[in-house]
Every structure is written in C-alpha cells, then in structure tokens.
Amino acid sequence: MLDFSFSFPLAGSNILQIFPTGSRNFIFDQIFFIFVLLGTIVGVIVIAYMLIQAYRYREGSAPKKDDVDRPKLGELPPPVDDGNKLLKSLLLSAVVVIALVVWTYGSLLYVEAQPSQVDGALTVEVEAYQFGFLFTYPDGYQSTGVLRAPVDRVTVLKITSRDVLHNFGSPDLRIKADAAPGHISETWFLAESTGTYDSACYELCGAGHSYMKADIIILENSEFEQWNKTKNKGS
C-alpha cells in the first residue's frame, strides 16, 4: 500500500511518485492540467482531421477515377471486412484513455485513505440543514455559517444532514462530499494559505439552495490555537 506520511507541503514534489499527491488543490490542478492539455490536443487533431477529410472528399472535387462501390437503393449491406483500421484506432484511443485514468487512480487511493489517523488532524462535524451548515468542533463548540481551521494541517470533515440531501463543497479547497440524512461521509482538506474561502451546497435542496453558503476561515496555527482556547468564552 501507499505511504501516507502527510509530510506537507512537500508531497507532490517527490519525483519517484508518478501520480500527484499532496493537498487536494495540488492533486486536482495537476491532473486537471494534464487532462485539459491532452483533451485539447486530441480534440483538435480529431476535429481537424474530420474537417480536412470532409473538405477533401466533397462532391465535385474531381476525383480522377471513381472505383468506389456506392450504396444503391434497395441493397443489403454487402459483407465486407473493413474493420482493421477501425480496430487499430480504437486500440490507440483505448491506450490513451486507460493510461490517463489509471494514472489518476493512485491519487484516488491517496485521497480516499483515512487521514483521520494522521497526527494533529482537526476533526469537525458538519451538519447540513435547510439552508445552512452547522459546524461542531471536537470540544462540542458549535457555529453556523463559519468554519475556522488551521493552515498546513489536515482537517477531517464528518458530514451529515438534518433533513434532505445536501452536498458540502468548497471550490477553493477542493472539498466536496454528500451530506445525506442518516449517513456520515468523511472527507478532508489541507489549506496551504490563510484567508477566507467560500463553501456552498452543491445539491439542489429547496428554495434556499442558491444562498446556502458558509465561509471557511483559514488561520495561522498560532491564531487558530488562540481562537480555539477563547471560543467558548466568547459565545
């Protein structure tokens, strides 16, 4: 199995590791970039090839001699075996697609590993409801609408729902997990810089769906510890 030492933020720069690991942003950006690059190249080549062939064999482009057997009205398709080129092309495309997806599989295993065992991970329970999020910290402190977490440290989220199906997601931190009633989904994130990030509900959940948002405030470790100590007094 893989080694999940979580030596952030160094992970990902390990040249021995073929697939990206590290923060979820890093993983996503790496894979997404490669996919966009290859997707664009393949798309441009295929579509350009189509256009060129279509132009080249347009009617009236004066073929020297027409030795092709054209379809005739009322014929049955003649039994010809012309699949060779087709199968070769298929093989090529299969190699590309399979290679790509297999390459990402290592990263999937990495993301799926249970980071709650990592030392020093902060675990926060998230309860989604119509229409907001309730965050519960290990010491029982609760807040709605704002999640505070330390920078450069793994935060584990245990997500559930009070009523309908929601989905807790933050595009900036590449978090996304379903919040289903009666079920706890676990996910994690690692913020690499401080600041305030958006998060929102990503599953249609009723009239207030468009405004079901929460802020994620990433603090310096010391700031976070400071807040962690004083939060119960403040409220």
Partner: peptide
C-alpha cells in the same frame, strides 16, 4: 463534432478524483 467534445470532457468525469470536484458544477 459536438459529441466528440462531449466525449472528451466526459473522460474528465471518468477520473474519480476529478469527478469529486466536478460533481454538482
């Protein structure tokens, strides 16, 4: 042509790690 573009962008969704982020977007 449109189907080819749809197909290529579908491969993105086939990679589960990417799918996690594309879900609901």
């Amino acid at each position: 042509i449109l189907f080819i573009i749809g197909g290529i962008t579908g491969v993105f969704l086939g990679a589960v790690v990417l799918d996690y982020e594309f879900r609901g977007t």
